[in-house]
Design a binder for these strands. Sequence first.
DNA 1: ACGTATGGTTTGCGGCACAGACTAGTTTGG
DNA 2: CCAAACTAGTCTGTGCCGCAAACCATACGT
Lengths: 116, 116
Amino acid sequence: MPGSEMSGSGNEELILDRLIHEPGRLAILTVLSSVKACDFVFLQRATRLTKGNLSSHLSKLEEAGLVEIEKTFVHKKPKTGVTLTAVGRERIAHHWDQLERLRNFSEESIQEPAQE
Amino acid sequence: MPGSEMSGSGNEELILDRLIHEPGRLAILTVLSSVKACDFVFLQRATRLTKGNLSSHLSKLEEAGLVEIEKTFVHKKPKTGVTLTAVGRERIAHHWDQLERLRNFSEESIQEPAQE
DNA sequence: ACGTATGGTTTGCGGCACAGACTAGTTTGG
DNA sequence: CCAAACTAGTCTGTGCCGCAAACCATACGT
């Protein structure tokens, strides 16, 4: 569980969630957030990930409660549907936020140590 | 906003350079790009990385030619100066670009495979 | 029945981030 | 003068995790 470490007065530092930051996952989540729902094969095409890779990423995202996986059969073939949960949607948005914050890093709390 | 045309063909996107994408390094590079030059201790304060961590990240960045390290002595104490190289500056800018592109991912080349 | 295609999971390996131990030198204090 | 303590940084071990190949299951063509 992400314990709240807010001992740092001033800059609430860039806690870039590795789970989300990981390129593969970032891609998955980004795709998901623009197409509400899709399936495994679509995701694979979209992200260019290998099956195995995609599969394990999806497992992690599911475990973390960021996506929901629903397995069904369509035309007698397995179909793995994936949807972003509310939490997931929030987390990814937050992540983009953090990134932007990092990018605009400037006036942020750090001063040149005046010693010298 | 640069009205950049994405040459519709195969989306070659998603080439998120792990070297740069890594949070620690992303932080370092971002700091560097806003303060042209600084030293080890400053970077450590700014990024909240541990010494060891920062040290190894810097080595990698140097190896990759993204930063330049210059060791001197100031007041008889070692001082490790760090500067972003031209390449580094370009690469980080490009990375932010890629991220933005990913974020705005939408109309991108992927269509629902119409076959069924 | 067999080969091939589709859809997905599990496994093993390799790379790498992380932080704590270590080095090197300097200042302080007794 | 010697020793603790502090500063500045590097090195090393460990564990996690991304990666894709191997594998499994089912469906379809002939």
